[in-house]
Each structure stands twice: as C-alpha cells, then as structure tokens.
Simulated assay, not measured.
Amino acid sequence: MNRIILPLLILGALFSCAEPSSLDKPLIYDQEDPNRPELMKKAQDVFQSVTPREYTPNPYEKVQLGKMLYFDNRLSKDGNISCNSCHNLETFGVDNLPTSPGDTHELGGRNSPTTLYAYMHRQQFWDGRAKDVEEQAGMPILNPVEHNIPSEEFLVARLKSIPEYVEKFAKVYGEQTHETLTFDHIGDAIGAFERRLNPRSRFDEYLDGNDEMLTALEKEGLTIFMDEGCTTCHSGVALGGSMIQKFGVYQDYWELTGSETIDNGLYDITKNESDRYLFKSPSLRNIEKTYPYFHDGSVDSLSTAVQIMAQTQLGKELEEEKVEKIVAFLKSLTATPDAELIAVKNRE
C-alpha cells in the first residue's frame, strides 16, 4: 500500500508546483499581435491608455510643494477653502455638488470639474479660457466668488510670511531665478502635483492588451459607445477634454436638463454669436463618481446624462438597454488615485 501511495504523493506535489495551464493565464495581447480581438484593435485606434502617457516630469520636491499648496486653506482670503474643497481627491477630484461654495460661501456659476487627468485636456475650464493646469491653478485664487484673494501680491506676501514656504520655494526654484516665491510659481507647483493625478483604470489595462479586464457587458457597451458616435467628442487618452463643442446640436440642452439658468458658454467671453452654448467636452474618466453632470451640475443620474447626450449631440433616442450597456462600459473607467500621493496626514 505505502509503495503505491508514495509515488502518487510525489506526482501530486510536482503537479501542484507546475506552471499554470494556458487556460489559467490572462489573455494579454501585444499591440502588433494579429490575434488581438477586433474590438480591442478598434478601441486601441480610438483611445489611448494612461500607461504610456508622458506627463511633464517634475522633481519630487516640486510635486510635494504643489500638494502642500493644493490642500492649504491659506490660499483663500479668509481661510475657508483650499483647492481640495471643490476638487476633493478623496471623492475623485470633485465635491459632488452642482456648484461649489467659495471663501465667502457664495456659490460659483458652474460645476467644479475633476482635477484627475485634467492636465491631459487641451484647455482648462468649461469655456477653455486657460491653456494648461498651471495657468488654471492661479485663476480661481483671484476669483472673488472662489478663493477671493484680492491680488497676486497679497498671496505672495502671505506665503512669504511663512518660513517653511520660503524655504521650499527656494529649494524648488532657486536655481532658476532669483525671485523664487512668485504667483506664477504657485500655479506652476500646483500644476506639477496635478500632473501626477492619473490613476490606471481597468479600461487602461484592456487597452494595454489584457482582454479579460472588461466583462462581456462592458464590451457590448464599448461597442455601442463607438458605433453610436460618442467618440466624436470623447476619444483619446482622456476620453474627452480635447475640444470645445456646442451643447445642444440637435435640441436645446436646457429642455432636457431642466437647467434653471441658460448658460451661454464661450459666448460670454468672446461675444461671438457662433460661440453661444459652446463648452469643453469633459473627460469621461471616473464619470461614474463625478456626478452631478454637465456644466451646471443639473443631472444626477449617469444613465439620464447618457440619454441626454444622445439626444442633444447625436439626434438619437437610445433604447434603455443600450444606455445601460454604455453605463456599464463607462464604469470601467473608474480609477482611484494613489492613496500615498493624495494622503494629507503629513501635511505641514
């Protein structure tokens, strides 16, 4: 009996230590693999993973300085808000409010978009009036409805009274210029921090070749998303953020959103009639978590937002089943920021 059992035990041990069978391995394809599924090929032609995306490299010290500024209430006149108040990194870079209260508790006129992936956008703000996150970072600081800082000089003088900031700005910018603590450098440091806010989602892993990262339902939603024309505005690495587009191509947006105020969009800046109701097409990354939707935060439901977009932008009324499949796909874009990067326990 023992002579039979012992060899069997040895064989069992060998098989238990063996490499997993091919059936146990994830289906990962190289970009040039001719066996890639057709859906993956099509998606890789339209979208881009955050993985190979190069952001402007910044020294660790600059990123940490930007983080300190991002969370600091002293960047508002009365110390009531920070950048993180409206763009809360614990809730995917938003505050989930239609519009946000500023330093004086007055509400802003538009929904606060997420700062996650924002550096990937071609322009900043709903009307695209800032060219990058560095320029954008300084503008709410001087806005009387937002941070309410009366002038650039006011904030620079305030931060220069804090020895730690003087030391940190000197360390980061000392080799570049004699004047290290400037308003432009404040925006530059905050931008350096925001350029690190680019977590990987399951959809990124799918684009990188792992076919098993999306469920069958999500793949159906991805197919519908592309076939129905949603990628006209929502493509590329950020799935949006690359163009200014009229909201309401086929139907006035407020008829469907129930917006209390009709926002003229870019027209308010240019006064060109052709710019009326033009807004930046937002990124769809983390869209599941960044409700309420649209420039005025007028819609809470993602399903409703998808249907409204189909009607206003594509002139289509999608079947409920298609909408829900698109929503399933959009949820694959959810990605949590790196906990260590956004942790504030060591904030000075």
Rank of each mutant, 00 (worst) to 15 (best):
R3P: 05
R3Q: 05
L8Y: 13
G12N: 02
L14G: 06
A18N: 14
A18C: 14
P26H: 02
R36D: 09
E38K: 15
Q44H: 00
V46C: 06
V46Q: 12
T51R: 13
P52M: 10
Y55H: 07
T56I: 11
P59I: 11
V63C: 08
Q64F: 04
K67E: 06
L69Q: 05
N73C: 14
S76H: 07
I81N: 07
I81F: 03
S85C: 12
S85V: 15
C86S: 07
H87P: 10
E90P: 07
E90L: 12
F92S: 11
F92N: 11
T99V: 04
S100G: 04
P101A: 02
G102Y: 09
H105Q: 01
E106W: 01
E106N: 00
G108I: 04
T114P: 01
R122N: 14
R122V: 07
Q123M: 11
D127A: 11
D127M: 03
A130Y: 09
L142C: 10
V145L: 10
S151R: 13
S151Q: 10
E153F: 10
F154R: 04
I162E: 06
E164Q: 10
V166Y: 03
K168E: 10
A170N: 13
Y173C: 07
E175D: 04
H178D: 15
H178T: 13
H178C: 06
L181W: 05
L181A: 11
L181E: 05
I186W: 01
A189L: 13
I190F: 12
R196L: 14
P199H: 13
S201V: 13
D204N: 03
N210V: 08
M213K: 01
M213Y: 08
E218A: 06
G221F: 08
E228C: 05
E228S: 05
C230A: 03
T232C: 00
G236Q: 04
G241K: 06
I244R: 07
I244D: 01
F247H: 10
G248F: 00
V249G: 04
Q251L: 14
Y253T: 06
W254P: 12
W254M: 12
E255M: 11
G258T: 04
G258E: 10
I262K: 07
D268P: 10
N272L: 05
E273R: 11
D275H: 15
L278C: 09
K280F: 15
K280Q: 08
S281A: 01
S283G: 10
N286Q: 14
K289Q: 01
P292H: 12
S298D: 04
G315Y: 15
E319V: 11
K325R: 10
K331F: 06
S332V: 06
L333C: 12
T334E: 13
A339I: 00
L341G: 15
A343D: 03
N346P: 00
R347G: 02
